[in-house]
Each structure stands twice: as structure tokens, then as C-alpha cells.
Amino acid sequence: MRILRLELKRAFGSREMKISLLLGMLLVIGQVIGFYTMHLGNEAFDQQWKLEDGTYEVGVLRDTLYQSFIGGEGFTFFNELYFSLLPILAAFPFAGSFFKDRESGYMKNLCCRMDRTRYHLAKYAAVFLSGGVAAGFPYLLGFAVSALIYPADFPNFLAMRDGANELSLFADYYFTHPLAYVMLYLLVIVAFAGVLATFSLLVSFWAKNILVVWFVPYMLYTTQKLLFEKLDIYQWAMEYMMNSQSKHNLLVDMTVGRLAIAFLIMVAITFGGFLVLGRKREVIV
């Protein structure tokens, strides 16, 4: 599909994408420095648990890669910051492009060359993919950078700083195939961030300002979290589904089924809504 290729080129070549990736990189740098200072570089912290013979107290094991990167530790505030900013990282690169295409009149150039549904499909796919990639980038980069510093030992069930317990999603993998665990969470982040970014497309039909378009996923994400916490159904909050280190992820039975249902509902709303609204509009541009 030629229009999809064009939209992807625009998405991944945009200045906004570079800014989003740069922001993700800064989060990773902050986390790596913060965690290193807190643990490996912090002798006082080390001495607290170290025994005279150089070993550590029972239950205190050395830092492993899987417990030290931005997606695997909940000690520095960067983990929380990353998952709080995630919808902005996802929406900023390309979710505003539909609004911009419409406002600038560029959409005319596109819609006179093809059926508008094809344009809408390509736009949806490009926003989804660029949003997912931009939001997943810090997770993957953080993992790669931490891999240069910390040993890739398997997480130990006895460790006091476990990033998962038996209730956690994909817990079996965490202790037996931790790399697969990390990749599965990366997939969850890419999928949820992608669909979050597409909410911007829906509001683009009515929005008068691009800031609204960029921030709607963030507002939705934050409001949903606060509301679901209040209603005591926090296990349905997107942030807790994506962040393996959230307290709720460690306390409730987070299941793949729940994730799949939440994802499909959001896709149905955004994909269906975007196509139907796009189709129904009498004035295309």
C-alpha cells in the first residue's frame, strides 16, 4: 500500500519523532545515573547489606539487569515518570498529523488521489506504529544500556527486590526466561501506546488546537487511572497493565485475557470511530 509507505516515512522522519525519542533518551540517562548512584555507586547502601566475608545477607542479591533497567525497577522515580509521560511520548511524533493535514489543506492533495478510507487506514496504522515505537523506545534503550552495566543473571525468587511475584503477569517467564518476559512487556507497551496515540485521531475531527490533539491521550490515560482507582477496578488501568513495576501489577492477578479485552475495546473505539467519522463527513477537507 503506497499511501501507508508515505505515511510511515512521514511519521518516522518527523521532527516530532526525533524530539520524542530524545525525551525518551533523557529519561533513560536519568534512570541509569539514578539507579547506579543509588545502588552500585552507593557504598553506604552496599555496606548496609554486606557481611564481613564479602557475601550479602540472605535475600539480598546483587543487582541484575532485569531488576535494574527503567522498565524493571521501581526504585528511582524515572520508572514512574516514564510510564506517566508515555502517552505524550506516543502521541507527539505523528498523532497530530491528521489534524495538521486537515488544517493546512494538505489532505486535499492526498484525498483527490485515492479513496479517503485508504488514507484513513494508512493514517491509523502510521499513528499506531509510530506511537508504539516512540513509547517503547526508552524501555528497549534502557534495557540495552543497563545490559552494559549489570549482569544478566536470572532474577532470584528470594531476592528482596524482585520485580515480579507469582501474581504478576508473565511471572513464569520472569524467573525462567527473563528476556522473553522483557520482550513480552515491550510488546504490551508498544500495543497500548500505539492505540493510545490513535485517540488523538478521533479528537482531530473537532479539535481547534493541536495541543488538545497531543494531550488527549495523556488526559484520557491519567483520568482513567484515577477513576479506576477510585472505583477499585485499578487492574483495568492502562498504566498498571504496561508497568510491570506498578504496585498493582504486583498485587492483583493481571491476566493476558484482561489485557487483550482492554486492548480490543480501545482498538474498536479508535479504529471504528475514526473510520466511521471519516466516512460520514460530508466535507472531506
Binding site: R2, S14, G105
Partner: peptide
């Protein structure tokens, strides 16, 4: 109305991108 293209691409690239559609 106004000619609308992508500001961050050159004239040549803009035409090439549009041509690539159909």
C-alpha cells in the same frame, strides 16, 4: 485554495511523495 505541502521536505521530495501514491 492555498498550495499545501510538507514544510520539512523540499519541493522535489514533496512532488515525489505525492506521485508515489498513484
Amino acid at each position: 485554495e492555498n498550495p499545501s505541502f510538507l514544510g520539512e521536505y523540499s519541493g522535489f521530495e514533496n512532488l515525489k511523495m505525492l506521485a508515489s501514491i498513484n
